[in-house]
Design a protein around this nucleic acid. Structure first.
Lengths: 152, 152
DNA sequence: TTAATGAATGTTATATTATAACAAAACAAA
DNA sequence: TTTGTTTTGTTATAATATAACATTCATTAA
């Protein structure tokens, strides 16, 4: 971490505030498990795996089981508070939950670093495709795998 | 099927010819298992699942096991002869293996129909992103999930 | 033709990811 | 407080995928 613990803590607090607000807006409840999973994903440097999260959960709540974690993940995904990386079967925080910007990911197969990214042209592309094909879009996945700048 | 068996057979033959040519170009061998898996995916109306393909394989070759199918799938994916739908964990034929056009998929969550599609703007977007981020691209996934025209 | 090499396949075992189904508890709201 | 709905608990199992090592096959150089 390049920043202090204090800064770090503030960032999480802020993310939780935003998440709470988004839940309220949707009449959804950010229960304890859901909040805990959100936090775990949020503080993770790497994309988090479902069973890794489960192991973490179980430290506080030994009764946690696979459905516990998958339900929480589904909930957070549906609200756009996290993203699933389908090529990795892993989960990452959303850097912009309030804006609902469509985003995509660059996945380096060498150093494993994953970068969330945005582009106006991507947003336009999605809109164009949906419209031209009369497609009622619910979710998109756009992931690019290869070698990052460092690893080329 | 809206077309005759004869037409159908010709299409598969042609696809196999193209696949064979592409393999030759890459110094790769289209062995029996690989060819069989390619055919099975090719003739499937729906995206094919790995273990479904395995079951088919085993009808001719009882010794086939999970690695058999996953190795063949990896081979075909690497050459761009098939695509993997990461949101569905399923495999579909590539409609344009020679052109290497980047393609994406529209997945209807109601009728399950999956449509492969292309767009010049998508190609440009990928090029732009890769270039601007110095990213050496190896593979992309772009899948849009929602309701198709029929199901809205 | 044969020996050597690397590629592909066979085989066993197991890891990883995810969901079905139903019961119990917590919550909302009438 | 009853009633209906959402959430969680729990057990079991389904579905997807890979590791590791042995064997066979194909290619080519000697």
């Amino acid at each position: 971490m390049s920043h202090s613990c204090q800064q770090h803590k503030q960032q999480i607090e802020e993310a939780l505030d935003i998440a709470t607000r988004i839940c309220e807006q949707h009449g959804a409840r950010l229960t304890d498990v859901r909040k805990r999973v959100f936090e775990l994903i949020w503080v993770s440097d790497q994309p988090a795996k479902a069973y890794g999260l489960l192991t973490e959960l179980q430290k506080n709540d030994p009764s946690a089981k696979p459905p516990t974690i998958y339900r929480a993940l589904d909930f957070l995904l549906e609200l756009g508070l996290i993203h699933k990386l389908h090529r990795l079967n892993a989960y990452v925080r959303c850097t912009h939950p309030e804006e609902k910007k469509p985003c995509f990911f660059l996945i380096c197969t060498n150093c494993q670093v994953v970068t969330e990214s945005h582009d106006q042209a991507y947003k336009k592309l999605i809109a164009k495709i949906s419209k031209s094909r009369d497609f009622k879009l619910h979710a998109t996945t756009f992931e690019m795998e290869g070698l990052c700048q460092q690893c080329v």
